[in-house]
């Protein structure tokens, strides 16, 4: 616990001594961390092989971008709208495929993210601006304060991350989180214990999609310009790797994973063009030495004293 508190303190003071470039790196880490936490619900907790999370992120970002540039609706108002649309989209695509097993689900989710990207490139409904994307998206403004500088975005993103961690932590340690874990362990036993497996799988998908939609909103207002290549299959792969490498089902692990996957290539910049080569090799090595992830989830324990004391 001490390490976590120390980490939060140092993190929140870091804009005081970091330059704009590194603050922006931290902002990217934060964005990926929230996305990965939302994927963690689907992949880490429920054990659904989902490699298309960028699709939901894209729906959120484009919803914000389109409604903001066309109707000038303030960014913050669009956050719930983006989440909602991403959630509805998540529901519609997940519903027919939710029963697919492991690897079949994996390839179909890859398909979804690719179809979404191609649709964006092809300027679907004349709304998405094709491969150039959409530009001129406003900044979020909180009661007169317009969030613009990297430092401001830093607090905006990391406070949002903090709220997400808090809510997801509670979710994990409750009826809902447990149900997802039962499904991951043994679908048939979960169903036989009275858990509506397909309903909970869908809920996991929709919740993950909603959160990815929120992040899409943050991303669009941070960049002010978005284009399809930010939402490719490759982004989904990165998120997938963050979750598995960090520790599936572990909030700490996923945040650490985001620092490593998004932060490390920045540190490798001195290796220039070889950095991705090193990165790929590092992924293999890390998996071999920590196949359960860097920080596997802790098991929930229940205090006997409390149980007996309350008799």
């Amino acid at each position: 616990m001490l390490i976590e508190i120390l980490f939060v303190i140092i993190l929140f003071l870091s804009p005081l001594f970091l330059n704009a470039y590194w603050i922006d790196v931290l902002n990217n880490i934060g964005i990926y961390a929230i996305l990965a936490l939302s994927l963690n619900i689907i992949l880490g907790h429920t054990g659904l092989f989902h490699m298309g999370h960028a699709a939901f992120y894209a729906i959120g970002a484009y919803t914000t971008a389109i409604l903001n540039t066309m109707y000038h609706i303030p960014i913050l108002w669009l956050m719930p709208v983006s989440g909602l649309l991403a959630g509805i989209f998540g529901y519609l695509v997940a519903r027919p495929i939710i029963h697919l097993r492991g690897d079949y689900l994996l390839i179909v989710t890859i398909g979804i993210v690719e179809i979404v990207r191609i649709a964006l490139v092809n300027n679907i409904f004349g709304l998405t601006g094709g491969s150039n994307g959409i530009f001129g998206i406003s900044r979020p403004s909180l009661g007169g304060l317009v969030i613009r500088k990297p430092q401001q975005f830093f607090y905006y993103i990391w406070i949002f991350l903090g709220i997400s961690v808090y809510l997801f932590y509670r979710l994990e340690n409750s009826r809902f989180g447990r149900a997802l874990n039962y499904i991951k362990e043994d679908e048939l036993a979960a169903e036989g214990s009275g858990i509506n497996v397909s309903k909970y799988k869908l809920l996991a998908f929709v919740l993950g999609a909603i959160w990815a939609g929120f992040v899409g909103n943050i991303y669009a207002s941070k960049m002010t310009i978005i284009s399809p290549e930010s939402f490719s299959f490759w982004e989904s792969v990165i998120l997938f790797v963050i979750v598995i490498l960090g520790g599936a089902g572990s909030i700490r692990g996923v945040i650490l994973g985001s620092f490593l996957i998004i932060g490390l290539p920045e540190l490798f910049r001195q290796f220039a063009s070889a950095r991705m080569l090193i990165f790929g090799a590092a992924m293999v090595v890390m998996m071999i030495f920590r196949p359960q992830g860097l920080v596997p989830p802790r098991s929930r324990t229940y205090s006997l004293e409390v149980l007996i004391g309350k008799e």
């Binding site: 092989f49 997938f240 992924m283 196949p291």
Partner: peptide
């Protein structure tokens, strides 16, 4: 003997390694 997803990530790492080589 590890979780299947660990092998998937290892495979993705190998893929990045090969294409960048």
């Amino acid at each position: 003997k590890a979780d299947r997803l660990a092998a998937v990530v290892s495979a993705l790492g190998a893929s990045i390694f090969f294409s960048n080589s």
